[in-house]
């Protein structure tokens, strides 16, 4: 290729380089078929990429941005796929917890939480010596929180993006 590199040919196509460089490349193109062929390949790519133009969004783009200015940016939410996985996980955990509760697996798990040796207890803070604790109540509270989270996830990561996209399309 008579010491003519691809980079030099690309600079030639971009219109870079001084007169001397351009003359050297032009001379090489006319005398060396390999250089000429390579330049043609690069020129085809160059011409193809030159067809790359700015695209215009829809006509009401600005209006839609302005009406959403105070909305929370949509893309900071979880993806629908991850939302669905998390939702399924929450539902499975809740169902498992409810099944175990109803089958009586936590029936023996109740008693008193002792506070006698609590480091929080001192002459200014008074705590009862113990409080009743039932794991079944605790599990039910967790299940309730899970259900609320699941509804929130369903809304934010699946339903809302779906309806927004449908509205747009």
């Amino acid at each position: 290729m008579q010491n003519i590199t691809d980079n030099e040919l690309l600079d030639f196509l971009d219109g870079n380089g001084d007169e001397r460089d351009r003359a050297r490349i032009e001379k090489s193109i006319s005398s060396d078929l390999t250089v000429k062929k390579r330049l043609e390949e690069l020129r085809l790519v160059h011409q193809f990429l030159q067809g790359n133009t700015l695209s215009s969004p829809s006509k009401n783009f600005t209006q839609r941005v302005m009406s959403n200015l105070h909305a929370r940016p949509a893309s900071s939410l979880l993806s629908p796929k991850n939302g669905l996985i998390l939702l399924a996980g929450l539902l499975i955990a809740s169902l498992l917890a409810l099944t175990l509760t109803s089958s009586g697996a936590f029936d023996q798990w109740h008693g008193f939480l002792p506070f006698d040796s609590s480091p929080l207890k001192n002459k200014w803070v008074t705590l009862p010596s113990s409080v009743p604790f039932d794991i079944k109540v605790f599990v039910k509270v967790v299940v309730l929180i899970n259900a609320a989270l699941a509804l929130l996830l369903l809304d934010r990561t699946i339903l809302r993006p779906y309806f927004q996209r449908r509205k747009f399309s």
């Binding site: 783009f61 909305a71 940016p73 927004q164 996209r165 747009f168």
Partner: peptide, 12 residues
Amino acid sequence: PEAEEIAQDAFV
């Protein structure tokens, strides 16, 4: 459509 959504989100 996704590009439009992204561009709007970016402006917000």
